[in-house]
Design a protein around this nucleic acid. Structure first.
Length: 283
DNA sequence: AAACAAACCTGTGCGC
DNA sequence: TGCGCACAGGTTTGTT
């Protein structure tokens, strides 16, 4: 579900509403959510600590605690972090509850909700990050959080024969782009998703670079994309609106709004569906 | 190196 | 109404 813009929106919510607050009590309702360690490890690692910072790398959230530990949260397909009234009924599939110290608006619970249970929450020691959360070290460049130049993109694209759609989804190369945004980026850059990466011209890579930054930037300003199922919401339960800007994702069979002539097509690669306009995006 | 399938789960929407 | 199937924003692992 959530890609870079959605995770960044959640991060900003945590920065505004959770940094500086103490985690007073912790409940774990589903062991699978803390499968890397254990319910005990999460409870002991969080209880009594104060969140001092929240960072994002690709689709990973990493919060720093005043204990010296850190917390990694990955929402995967269906995870949500929600700030909730402690007296309100908890949503179905609430797997972790962190009761926070009061701020100006009183006490609150930070909930980790995740129907499909692919998501994960883990406390780790930053000094042993390479051993405890090795995937963080394997992430590629984050287009918004890191310097990310056309030369950087060229260096990733030029030596690879894989289809450009698959390259954009590879978190070891570029961190944060997922299925929705890769479709939108390629459409706006006028590049066919099946195009072999090493056949892209320098002007095409320049357009691709520009659209990676523009699409992700615009989507962050729109607070992400909330699709029809309403699964993605921000910390306060609010929807994003970038879905209103989608030009191809989820629009198979519709006339292309960019050229007014093509009919959006749908393909499957690596088990994921992708969408493009055969007129705007030539093979 | 690249492509694919399967695995991890639950929910929803669709055709019949 | 109910059943069965396809499909969903992610990532890892193992096989061709």
């Amino acid at each position: 579900m959530p890609e870079l813009p959605e995770v960044e929106t959640v991060r900003r919510g945590l920065q505004d509403r959770v940094v500086g607050r103490r985690i007073e009590t912790v409940e774990v309702g589903r062991e699978r959510t803390v499968r890397r360690t254990s319910p005990r490890a999460l409870i002991d690692g969080l209880t009594g600590t104060t969140v001092t910072a929240v960072d994002r790398r690709g689709k990973y959230l990493v919060a720093t605690l005043d204990s010296g530990d850190a917390v990694m949260v990955h929402l995967r397909m269906s995870g949500q972090l929600l700030l909730a009234d402690p007296t309100a009924p908890r949503p179905p599939h609430t797997h972790v509850v962190m009761h926070l110290s009061p701020d100006g608006d009183g006490a609150a619970d930070l909930l980790f909700v995740d129907p499909r249970t692919f998501g994960e929450v883990v406390v780790f020691d930053p000094d042993h990050a390479a051993a405890e959360v090795p995937e963080l070290a394997r992430l590629g460049l984050d287009p918004l959080a890191d310097p990310f130049t056309v030369a950087d993109l060229w260096a990733l694209v030029h030596p690879r024969r894989t289809r450009i759609k698959m390259l954009l989804l590879d978190q070891h190369l570029i961190a944060g782009v997922g299925n929705i945004y890769s479709d939108e980026i390629l459409h706006r850059a006028r590049i066919h998703p099946d195009r072999a990466a090493d056949t892209l011209t320098r002007p095409a890579v320049r357009r691709l670079h520009q659209e990676i930054l523009d699409v992700l930037g615009a989507a962050v300003r729109r607070r992400g994309s909330t699709l029809g199922d309403g699964q993605y919401v921000d910390l306060m339960g609010g929807s994003g609106s970038y879905q209103l800007e989608h030009l191809v994702y989820g629009r198979a069979g519709e006339r292309c709004g960019t050229c007014g002539r093509g009919i959006i097509r749908r393909g499957v690669a690596g088990g994921r569906s992708y969408h493009w306009c055969p007129v705007c995006q030539r093979a």
